[in-house]
Design a protein around this nucleic acid. Structure first.
Lengths: 183, 183
DNA sequence: AATCTAATTTGACAGCAATCTAATTAGATT
DNA sequence: AATCTAATTAGATTGCTGTCAAATTAGATT
């Protein structure tokens, strides 16, 4: 699990927030916290372990007791930049950017690679066009006839496909000459 | 449940953090989010409801879609002062300040009100003394003999009790005269 | 009007987390 | 050394929460 999530999870419990609130005023031993919160010592120990783990409280031993103390510096520092741009960006590190396209392609493409229909909705059409355009080599010039031949493998309405590919700038067309290419 | 806890709980899930991370870059529809995160639409709907509830994202309807958008202002404002002094103080509003004393009293006092023993540990002794001192009226003067008589109802070692009460400043003694009172 | 689509709601289920009891450990006090 | 105390760990239980499938709703397109 990542650090941001650990931090937030450590704070997402009512009793742990109370512990922080109590320690914000003065240090307490585990036994005192248990009595104040009406919890068993083992439960408090469990909560304190989580708070220690993310560095929000520290403990020092004092004869019989462990005295717990709030690390205000850490709390302030972490809560300030916990949802910074970098941290939010990090949270989506493992999100597959092409997942949506893949889903649309699965929905519209037969096993043989041809299209069931041409999507009417813009977002899905874009995803399908990005799939179709892969059939063309980058920077290679194609005649309109050749383009239609290739597109016919996807759908009989090659004119629509060709027009949309150009419309969404996935392919370019040379002036009046009828030459197409993928950039 | 209080606002602080709601806010933190809304953020304490990996997929909800990913949603925030995605929306930080651009708005998405629920369907797209579901595809990107490999979740079912109903699950995403559930997550978005929580984020909407705490005001971190807003939704606007656009033909077929609900387009969700991150409210960066709210995120920044809330994350800045969630763990402020006031909020921490609020979290312990319902914590019984006398709970620790009560627990100690339960442990040391018999049904008839007398003490099983006089605690050796400082913190517990203090709690018991705060309990014992209630037997004296505030500002009324007592002779040492009367003090001992009252304390004998708690423990036979009245001398120790009397000494500790004075030592912890719960009762005052007039110079050499042997008069005691509770302030 | 009929149909289609995304979103939401409902109900079920599985996994995780909070809590307790009981047992154990680590330190201090006597 | 023996005893006491607080803290921790282990195991069990209970409640909460994320997830999905199925049914329903709300809106838009045809």
């Amino acid at each position: 699990m990542n650090e941001m999530l650990d931090f937030v999870k450590a704070l997402s419990d009512a009793n742990r927030l109370k512990i922080l609130g109590l320690l914000a005023r003065q240090p307490y031993s585990g036994e005192e916290l248990a009595a104040l919160l009406n919890l068993k010592a083992s439960t408090v120990s469990h909560h304190l372990a989580k708070l220690l783990q993310v560095g929000l409280v520290s403990a020092k031993t004092e004869s019989y007791y462990n005295v717990y103390q709030l690390d205000e510096k850490a709390l302030e520092a972490k809560s300030r930049n916990i949802f910074s741009q970098e941290n939010l960006a990090a949270s989506i590190a493992d999100v597959d950017a092409g997942a949506y396209d893949n889903k649309v392609v699965r929905d519209y493409v037969r096993k043989d690679g041809s299209l069931k229909t041409i999507p009417a909705q813009r977002k899905k059409l874009e995803a399908i066009l990005r799939y179709v355009v892969k059939a063309f080599e980058v920077n290679k010039r194609y005649s309109e006839k050749k383009v239609n031949e290739i597109l016919s493998g996807y759908h009989e309405d090659t004119a629509s496909l060709r027009r949309e590919l150009v419309g969404y700038s996935l392919m370019k067309r040379e002036g009046g000459g009828g030459e197409y290419w993928r950039e």
